[in-house]
Computed example of a mutant assay.
Amino acid sequence: MSISAKDVKELREQTGAGMMDCKKALQEADGDFDKAIEILRKQGQKLSEKRADREANQGLIVTRVSDDGSEAAALEINCETDFVARNEDFQNRAKQFLDIVFENKIQSVDELLEEKLDDLTVADHLKDMVSKIGEKIKIGRIVFANSGGHYISYIHPGNQLGVLVEFEGEVNDEEIGKDVAMQVAAMNPIAVTKDDVDSSVVEQELEIAKEQLLNEGKPEEIAEKAAQGKLRRFYEERVLLQQKFVKDNSLSVEEYLKEQSTPLVKSFHRLQLGEDS
């Protein structure tokens, strides 16, 4: 049947798909808009599958914190190119998905994909984005946090790195909280305190340090003691509260917070594009 340019334009506005794709879908659906949309979505699914092996290591990190600081959420959405990540529609979708995580207290990507946005699941919205944009697009990670502390967020310029820091109590000066969040972004600690470091990591660090010292010819007993010294330096480099504060190296982060009469850090989440944790 003959398909009018007006119908093609209307379908394109509804779906964001290309003009020729819309025209072919309408022809295949005999002018039925609902069927044409379904056809386009199926094409998007095929395109998504076709691009499943492509690298999607660009994208955005977005965060949201409640007005009282008691709840926070973060989301990583990935695409193939920085050009797409800078697209306003892509950025708006990221914020919409983040709002779903925040408002529904979503705890996993799979759970998010099943949630509805404007009568479509998030999974279907992603398929439509793939169909429209022509790149692999996926939700990388999400975080929803409400563990009883006070949350502060920081997004590094470019939205490729985001941090949520939970403090043990209310932070009266948000700039202090931001400073600590920036510390997490810059120094990439693995734990808040040394007690939080996994015992297997501690054992590995001690073993490496001891082996290095023995290889240097140190006696076993001296190597054992010196390895403990190296472990202390490891904690100072990798444990947040023991790290040197980046804005004042004369203080540790813990000393800085105590000096500012600010609650200590309880937990943190650091999301960087392409990292697994």
Rank of each mutant, 00 (worst) to 15 (best):
S252I: 04
S4E: 09
I190A: 02
L231E: 07
M20V: 14
R12P: 04
S108C: 11
G149K: 02
D89C: 11
A191K: 00
S48C: 12
E103V: 10
V239N: 00
K105E: 14
M187V: 04
E236S: 09
K138C: 13
V109H: 06
F245D: 02
Q96V: 14
Y154A: 06
N249Y: 08
Q243D: 01
K244H: 09
L206I: 10
E71N: 13
R232M: 13
V246P: 00
K258T: 10
D32T: 08
R238P: 02
L75P: 01
N92K: 12
D32H: 09
K95Y: 13
Y235W: 06
Q272I: 10
V197E: 04
D124P: 04
I139G: 01
I37P: 00
K95D: 13
E55S: 15
K258Y: 07
K225W: 05
H150I: 07
S250G: 11
D248A: 09
S277A: 15
S2K: 14
Q107G: 13
G16L: 08
E203Y: 10
L126P: 01
D118F: 09
E220K: 13
V65M: 12
C79D: 07
I152P: 02
E205D: 10
A227P: 04
F268R: 02
S199R: 11
H269E: 08
K225L: 11
D67S: 15
N215C: 10
V109F: 08
I152W: 02
L214F: 07
N172Y: 11
R54Y: 11
G16A: 09
R232P: 03
S261I: 09
M187N: 07
L271Q: 01
G134M: 08
L251D: 04
N92I: 11
D32F: 06
P263D: 12
M20I: 14
E175G: 11
E114D: 14
D89I: 15
V202A: 03
E170T: 14
K105P: 05
A25I: 07
E207W: 05
L161R: 08
A74L: 11
I139S: 02
R270A: 03
K210W: 03
D34F: 08
A181N: 05
E135Y: 07
A226S: 14
S267T: 13
L240Q: 00
L26N: 01
Q107Y: 08
A85W: 05
A5L: 12
D195V: 06
Q212G: 03
S199Y: 08
I152D: 03
I61Q: 03
R233I: 12
E55T: 15
A73K: 02
S261M: 11
T63G: 07
I142W: 00
K210G: 01
Q243G: 00
A94G: 06
A145N: 08
R86Q: 15
D53M: 12
I106E: 01
E275K: 10
L113E: 13
A226Y: 05
K6P: 03
Q91V: 10
D173H: 10
